[in-house]
Amino acid sequence: MAAGGDHGSPDSYRSPLASRYASPEMCFVFSDRYKFRTWRQLWLWLAEAEQTLGLPITDEQIQEMKSNLENIDFKMAAEEEKRLRHDVMAHVHTFGHCCPKAAGIIHLGATSCYVGDNTDLIILRNALDLLLPKLARVISRLADFAKERASLPTLGFTHFQPAQLTTVGKRCCLWIQDLCMDLQNLKRVRDDLRFRGVKGTTGTQASFLQLFEGDDHKVEQLDKMVTEKAGFKRAFIITGQTYTRKVDIEVLSVLASLGASVHKICTDIRLLANLKEMEEPFEKQQIGSSAMPYKRNPMRSERCCSLARHLMTLVMDPLQTASVQWFERTLDDSANRRICLAEAFLTADTILNTLQNISEGLVVYPKVIERRIRQELPFMATENIIMAMVKAGGSRQDCHEKIRVLSQQAASVVKQEGGDNDLIERIQVDAYFSPIHSQLDHLLDPSSFTGRASQQVQRFLEEEVYPLLKPYESVMKVKAELCL
């Protein structure tokens, strides 16, 4: 049975990233139509530049190519590739079939990587351009969430054990800070992308030097003109047959890092959902379990974690691919890159769409948070109580021993009897502590235990987050809708 299948058929496997999760716009960027249309555009740009620099290419040939950029006979191309065992030459023939007058000058002087690699770089750039505003929107939604809850005390956790208090907004800023680093890295790697350009079979530009009869300047002009037509500021000066596969490492490393950030955020949300302090959106008709109707599973956060793990592992592909590119190139890269580049971007696209949807509907339960604080705060307040007693004339050592005994009794009630923490009640009825009984409410005010959390939130948002989001103001209103 021949390899390949009808990918629109229910009898043929289709990647869930495309069929179930990723956005239509990201799927289109990695589609065959987008790819092969870009090949034709690159052939047109090459012909236009070659004509401008004096090669015998007519206006009629150029116009014929322009008129057929979208006229792609995919069936013919597939048949040609089956016959020739070469995808680029299959599309040269297919393009030439609908451009008979231009057929002889299509791909003039070029090698397969002229269309293959340059198209990949265009796709990487455009895919990054799709991700950047999506990530900015996630940051914006979380920034709104953090600002609104900047002063809401909550129990902090280290080692997932109760620690000092923080605020809900401050905790959210930990998430935002990681995503801001990801946004900066995505922008950097996007701006650092260079075009492969017009380089020939081993990167020496020998074929173009021959076409222009040894004119170095025209060869350099050709490279520059096509690079500018493709919208790049610069091209690699040095290439082998391909652009260095280190570029793929750079791009997928940034995406993998984004995956790590999203995994951490969504894990926190899942843990908070278990504590009943916070939940992701839950639709009115949504079913959490087929057997347990009360369940409210954090399905979206779980999906993000599941896909983020996949995204983090994909960076190993370009690392290994770059390491086995012998001399000017081997074909070890080809099949692998067809999979890992598309999957990385479709996965990143999915987790950003999902995280935006989550961040637009996060639900906080202040009463649950308050109750958990009441359970733990008495123990945390013991040092403040000791200091207040010393100020009232008591002995630190005597007070410490009193607190120690009462704390152990209260802990026994919590752990052995399943009761509430009654340390404060014990202190309130103990005559030894009568000098500070009137101060206990103040000493137990949760806001006095959150330090500068709310001020940190305000400063972080104003100095770091809002300036970073400013270039994306025009796209901030787009909502994230999930079908599944």
Rank of each mutant, 00 (worst) to 15 (best):
L272H: 06
R296H: 03
D332P: 03
Q285I: 14
Q458S: 13
A150C: 12
S140F: 15
G288K: 00
A127M: 00
T201G: 07
M181I: 12
K470L: 12
H86I: 02
V168C: 09
A78E: 13
D32S: 14
G104A: 13
R37V: 09
R196S: 11
R245C: 00
S151M: 11
L461H: 01
V478I: 15
F327E: 08
E425C: 07
E401K: 13
G96A: 12
I339L: 11
H442Q: 10
P56V: 12
T202Q: 09
E370M: 15
C340A: 14
H310P: 01
D73K: 08
F327Y: 10
V414C: 03
C180Y: 05
S9N: 15
D32V: 11
L46F: 05
Q164L: 11
V168A: 05
K35P: 01
D73Y: 08
A143D: 02
H437K: 11
P133A: 13
S23W: 07
F232W: 05
V364A: 07
E148H: 12
G361L: 08
L186Y: 03
I358G: 04
L440R: 01
F449L: 05
L346W: 08
R171Q: 00
K415T: 07
T58V: 10
G451A: 10
D191M: 10
D215V: 13
R37G: 10
T267K: 04
S407V: 06
I238K: 04
I424W: 11
F282H: 13
L314G: 09
T267Y: 04
M380F: 06
D87L: 04
P100K: 12
D192A: 15
M225L: 13
L440A: 06
E463K: 12
I287S: 03
V368F: 06
F145A: 04
E417C: 09
S289N: 00
Q356G: 11
D445I: 09
K367T: 04
A260N: 07
Q325I: 10
T330G: 11
S447W: 12
I122T: 06
K66Y: 11
K229G: 05
K479W: 15
A335Y: 06
D349F: 03
M476C: 15
V315C: 10
K199L: 00
V262I: 09
L444W: 08
C340R: 04
V465F: 02
Q375S: 04
H400R: 03
E220M: 12
L108R: 01
L355F: 14
C113A: 11
P298M: 05
C113R: 02
I373P: 00
T58L: 12
R196G: 08
G394W: 07
H400S: 02
K477Q: 12
Y472A: 10
A163R: 00
D441V: 09
R303P: 00
T158S: 12
F282A: 13
N384S: 14
S19W: 09
Y34K: 06
S151Y: 09
D11T: 13
T267N: 09
Q397A: 06
Q375F: 09
A410R: 07
C27L: 12
